[in-house]
Design a protein around this nucleic acid. Structure first.
Lengths: 170, 170
DNA sequence: TTAAACTTTCAATAATTATTGAAAGTTTGT
DNA sequence: ACAAACTTTCAATAATTATTGAAAGTTTAA
């Protein structure tokens, strides 16, 4: 198969994945294209490769930079800007997790904490149940949070593998 | 604060979270409502509480049942069906993870495996980079997969906490 | 200081996805 | 067999979200 065809298949599939997880398809596609390329690409090259408008590419590149998944590069003697993906899979996943946590999980945690501190009026058994639910959700989220922190620290591939193996036989 | 008000805040926030993660807002809202209630609710009660149409509630309840997050219940002497959430947070997260893995991650894994087995034509350095990228993504996904399997096994709260603590000081 | 090269913005539009609600379908009791 | 009670379906519609593209803005070099 032609390399370029393989790249485009990856771009499509990665775009679909993003899309079903609430990431704009174009953003995920641009990310996939940059991941596929060792070298940095210009806005024009991205537009051409995935058939997107200039505005779309511009906005989504900015977002990818916010997420720390892509960085701007300058080429000697070239006026225009080039873009390259961060190719470290651990950093990629760390940055995606951090960003989504901050944007989308934080509001939930904030509400759960607020609800924990509220005195609720109503049928006492129902109040008890609700409080219990809020508490266990909050605990669960905290634990996932800790687990993700842990994973970030354990970004040494080998060590991580060992940890998993170690507990796999439990 | 009134219990019902607290419930509705939770419903709204949970709905927004779902929405930003590619889960239909109504589905997440219905789930949140059922989580908030100890007792099972009828379609009518759900429609009333969240102001949704009968069709919407029906379809999203079916989906929640597919995801194993909700079950149908019968009440003695009542003809209509009632619905109750699974209240075990570990099972909830396990089921959500499994479902999303199956639906959305599987196609990516399939593609990555296919690409690993392809012979690619093109500039050899670029091919090498692309192959490397595919390989490390595939490895990463497998590891996350294993980690999630592990977590499912470690659904004993206490033990899980210990594991985290154990490595936290690393 | 000019103008070409390049980037950014954002109102308009398109595409996608979710929701409605009425009609059709099913089940149950008499 | 009937009809009331209830559930399901799905074409039409609404809501949301993403994308376009042309105009405005910026930077650079001569």
């Amino acid at each position: 198969m032609e390399l370029d065809k393989a790249k485009m298949e990856f771009v499509q599939t990665w775009g679909a994945l993003g899309s079903s997880w609430g990431i704009p398809r174009s953003m995920a596609q641009i990310h996939a294209l940059l991941l596929s390329n060792k070298n940095e690409l210009s806005t024009e090259e991205i537009m051409e490769a995935i058939q997107l408008s200039r505005g779309n590419v511009n906005i989504n590149l900015r977002e990818l930079i916010n997420w720390k998944l892509v960085s701007k590069q300058n080429k000697l003697g070239e006026r225009k800007e080039f873009f390259a993906a961060n190719h470290n899979i651990w950093e990629i996943s760390k940055n995606i997790m951090q960003e989504r946590k901050r944007r989308e999980l934080q509001p939930v945690q904030d509400l759960l904490i607020a609800l924990k501190n509220e005195t609720l009026e109503g049928d006492s058994e129902e109040v008890l149940h609700f409080k219990e639910m809020v508490k266990s959700l909050d605990e669960f989220i905290s634990q996932m949070d800790q687990l993700s922190e842990l994973m970030i620290k354990l970004n040494d591939n080998m060590f991580f593998k060992k940890v998993i193996q170690m507990f796999q036989n439990k």
